[in-house]
Amino acid sequence: MAGKSHRAGLFDLRLIIAVLFGIYGVVLTIVGFGFTSDEDLAKADGLNINLWSGLGMLVLAAFFGVWTFTKPLIVPDEVSAEEEPAGGAH
């Protein structure tokens, strides 16, 4: 969403991935830290799987976030400028 050329910002798939896994990561990390019962731990054979998965998702989100901002997507002015007129393949 930084100041790059056209309307790529929100619709950059990398940003969408970063946002979704950012949310998931934060939620799972908090649940893993503060709201994990002994029963939950026993279920996952002693691993705090919510915490670890949450942290893993935060790393994934950070990767896509960094990628989005270091190489922003530039959308050309005319959509599909290089295409021949659609439907003209006869």
Binding site: L13, I16, A44, D45, L47, I49, G56, M57
Partner: peptide, 25 residues
């Protein structure tokens, strides 16, 4: 297509921890 890419990551995010817990067990 965008949703397919998103789905790919969600599936990995679901199955990788499952595999890790399973192997641990």
């Amino acid at each position: 297509i965008y949703n397919e890419v998103l789905q790919f990551f969600v599936i990995v995010a679901a199955l990788l921890p499952l595999t890790i817990v399973g192997l641990h067990k």
